[in-house]
Write a protein that binds this DNA or RNA. Structure first.
Lengths: 154, 154
DNA sequence: TATTGTTATACTCTATAACTATA
DNA sequence: TATAGTTATAGAGTATAACAATA
């Protein structure tokens, strides 16, 4: 009788349910493992937002980057140390503020980010090629709009 | 130059980038906080997959549910204890296997899941009402297909 | 011998607090 | 006084290992 609850069948209900699945730990682990497989050992689920944020926003202090990616500056500082030891980022003094230290991708760091991005994009594009023409592009546009405007996703 | 890396501009590249953002801890925390605000204290980011899984799949043993939701059975067992203490689920002997203990939603547990689902669905639907007619439904259908068929999301 | 539920333990990731240096 | 980076500490969440009970 009530062993299984009926879902909410509106678009919002469908999206919410699927997001719940995407946010599951096992899904995240799987995605990050795929993303970083074979690359430097310093690249994992924890350091990815740091190096990816630097690639996206450009050189920044730990405090700035922490604000951008939603982590505490102490966490960014620790991950930055790992990435710097691996030679993927470098620390350099901020000419405008002697308290701050800018974090910046090195050449190998840029290459690593390019690899991760290209790898993940290829995995999705290969699958999306099975969709009807235009559907993938429409979907990507809607997803971007939702992520930028939508509730607690922006 | 090269301070900011160029993105992958294919649909797959766009989707991958946005998923990376959605999976960020701060985004997850925000979503789960919204989902469980004002409800029983046993409902949080950790117990949600357990109670949600029972609602989705029906009464199950901890080992079965652990497999369904991608957690270890020891973790499911611990979260189940919290949910049971709150009266949201109950443990009952499995008539088919005396080693197993079935986990099942109680009435209040069903009500809690309905509330969480309805709440999240409403938040999305309210925003999606700003989209052109039909776009939300098309997007939800594509998202469902991607989550069911797509790389490491199924 | 294999599997279930449970508990103890260890590990990872994060936030908070505290410290020094600089604005 | 406020903010930068860093480090020590504590907290949350998970997996692993080990146990007794049952298949």
């Amino acid at each position: 009788m009530h062993a299984i609850l009926a879902r909410v069948t509106t678009p919002g209900g469908e999206i919410a349910e699927i997001f719940g699945h995407l946010l599951r730990r096992s899904t995240r682990d799987h995605l990050y493992a795929r993303l970083t497989a074979g690359l430097d050992g310093s690249l994992d689920q924890a350091t990815y937002p740091v190096i990816s944020g630097l690639a996206r926003y450009g050189p920044r202090s730990a405090a700035q980057l922490a604000d951008d990616i939603g982590l505490d500056r102490s966490v960014v500082s620790r991950h930055a140390t790992r990435l710097a030891q691996a030679g993927l980022i470098e620390r350099l003094p901020d000419p405008a503020d002697r308290r701050a230290i800018l974090l910046r991708l090195t050449g190998p760091g840029q290459q690593a980010v390019r690899q991760m991005r290209a790898r993940l994009a290829a995995v999705f594009d290969e699958y999306l090629a099975t969709w009807p023409p235009g559907e993938a592009a429409r979907f990507a546009a809607s997803l971007r709009r939702l992520s930028e405007e939508g509730p607690f996703l922006g």
